[in-house]
Structure formats: C-alpha cells, structure tokens
Design a protein around this nucleic acid. Structure first.
Lengths: 174, 174
DNA sequence: TACTATGTTTAGTAAATACTAAACATACAT
DNA sequence: ATGTATGTTTAGTATTTACTAAACATAGTA
C-alpha cells in the first residue's frame, strides 16, 4: 500500500519542507504548514506534534512566525481551551501578507542604510572622479530598491492578487 | 574625516552584507558584490581579499556563485594572467539571470515533487472524502506554483526588464 | 486552594553553514 | 625542467540556526 493517504501526506510534507528551506525558512516550518494544509479540520498543537514529530516548543515558535506571515490562522473551538490552527489556503492572500510583514523588517532597515549612504554623500560632497562614480552606483541601487518597493506596495494594495491580475501582468509582459 | 570614501564604502558594504543575509545568501557574498560594485575598475582576487578581509578560498567559491547568478563577470587584462571581476550594474539583468539560474535548481525539484504527488493520486484514485480534499489542496498549490513559474518565465523572456516594464506592471495593478 | 491541561520560554545540544588555513593544481616564465 | 604567480579544493573550525527537553506561566476545574 505505497499510495495510502498517510504516505502521500508524508511525501508532500517532505516536499514542502525542502521548498521552505530553499526560501531560507526552517524546514520544520514547511512541514508544519504542509500538515495543516492537508488537514480538513484545524489541528491542535499536540496533533501537530504527532504529525510532524517536532516538539511542542519548536512548533509553538514556528507557528507564531507562520501566523505573523498570515500563512496559518489560530482558531478556537467552543468549550475547548486548546488552540487550533489551520492553513491559509489562498496563496495569493498569503503572499500579500508576507510582503506586508516584510515592510517593517530587517530588510527595510538595510535598505534604509543605502538611502543614508546617499544622503551622507550629498551632505559632504567632494568633487572628485571616484566620488562621483560611487555616488552614481549607490544611487542606481537605491532606485532599483525603490522600484521593487513600489511593486510590492502595489501588490499589497490589491484586494486580491487573484488569477486575473497575474494574467494581466503576463499580458503586459508579452 | 568620518565621511571619507573608504568609510562610505565600508558602510555601504556592511549594508549590502545584511541584505544578502536577509535573502538567505552568505553575508560575505554581499560584501564581495558591494566591493566590486563600488569599484570603478575590475578587481583581482587579491584586491578583493584586501578589501573584504576574507580569504582567497572563500572568495573563490563565493565569486563563482555570484558569476553563476550573473551578478559578477570575470574579465581578463591583456598581458596579465590574473582574473579580474566586475559587478553587473544592471540589476534588472541580474534578476533575470538569477531567475533563469533557479530554473534548474533544487527549487524546481521540490516543485516537481508536488506535481508527482498529484500524479500518484490520480493513478491510484480512491473515492473517499479526505482523499478528495487532499487532492484538491495539492492541486491548488500546484496551480499556484504554475502561476509563479509563468511569471518568472515571462520575466526571463524579456530582453530587458527595464524601467518601462516595471511601470507597465504598476499601471496594470493600479 | 491545589490540580490539570494547555501554551511559552529558556538553556543547552545538534546540525547546518560560512569561513580559514594550508595543500594542491595549473600555467606561464625563466 | 624548475620556480613563481595564480586560482581551486579540502579538511578542519567557528558561527549561526534549528531543535529538544524541561522548567515555567496561565487559566480553567474541582
């Protein structure tokens, strides 16, 4: 019975773990999402422990990260004080949510540092060949980041980054 | 003299190192790129050693990765058997190149595993409620990946993902 | 109140990754 | 050929990151 549901789930979970690692997230995070994603009903922490083999502690922290990104949602059952978790099944919504999350992150701080470099140079200008060169390069990087930033903001602003929008983009890029 | 060129370069380099780490690349990689990006002339391995403080070995391997992504280019000076390296200054070109690179990567293998799961289920179909549910979810993920894949392919196909294209996309997403 | 079921934090360990130092390979120069 | 300048590979180390086990906190229940 190499094609029973449990085995299929396990394979799928391993696949998502790898994808997770590829994007620089812990593989456990991918596994947790996979388990929730394939579950018809929300799962409790202990159920996730059982399915993934990770410990409560690890899951507790990973799941908070997932929730911050909008990839899973907490829910409660009446008369049950366990927390339950379910996966966000709309990936377009998830992407928007991840992008939104990143706005306030480490990344933005680093990007700001590029902008600061630019400002510093302008405030203490030296008329010299290499100075000029460096300035132009930093500026080019900065406007690239701006373009990216505008793109992500546009995506975040959309009510739904649905199929139709993706199609539109594909059309424009033709 | 807190605003001399060497200091500005150092700050910028540190900023790019962090950005590099944020995207899941070694911070040394960001540093190497930064140093090349701010240099008016191509640099030799030893010059990069001097500027970054990393060892030859590390730089040798990181720079190969950067070259594979199209973020730096090797060049040679006539009558000099050193290799010289310079940064790709067109980030749009770099993005395309990175995306192209990723096509053949670990990522694609993982994505393919999702497609395989789907195939397996179709080939050994079981008419049952949960089976159906799982199938639909896997399928949804798969078509999401497909959309992403089409987007990246479209971007890679463009001769130049220039300013105008980004503007176009922004227009469509309005 | 103490007891139980739950989630979180913490301190330590294991595993993965980035990096160093040094041996090695290659090609050119003499 | 031998020596020298270069880039690469390798084996080991350090750093970072993911994870575990267990203590802790909290809220509900008897």
């Amino acid at each position: 019975m190499t094609h029973s549901l449990p085995i299929i789930k396990k394979d799928f979970t391993e696949g998502l773990s790898q994808i997770s690692r590829f994007w620089g997230f812990p593989k456990g995070m991918g596994a947790i999402f996979a388990v929730l994603y394939l579950s018809p009903t929300p799962l409790s922490l202990d159920e996730i422990v059982r399915e993934t083999g990770l410990t409560k502690g690890a899951i507790s922290t990973e799941i908070r990260a997932l929730a911050r990104m909008g990839l899973v949602h907490r829910s409660a059952k009446l008369g049950d004080r366990k927390d339950y978790y379910e996966a966000e099944a709309d990936f377009y919504a998830a992407i928007r949510s991840i992008l939104k999350e990143r706005q306030n992150s480490e990344f933005d701080r680093a990007i700001r540092s590029v902008k600061d470099t630019l400002k510093t140079m302008e405030d203490h200008w030296v008329e010299e060949e290499e100075w000029n060169f460096v300035y132009e390069r930093v500026q080019a990087l900065q406007s690239f980041f701006d373009a990216i930033d505008n793109l992500t903001k546009a995506v975040v602003r959309l009510e739904s980054l649905g199929f139709s929008n993706v199609t539109k983009i594909l059309g424009v890029l033709k």
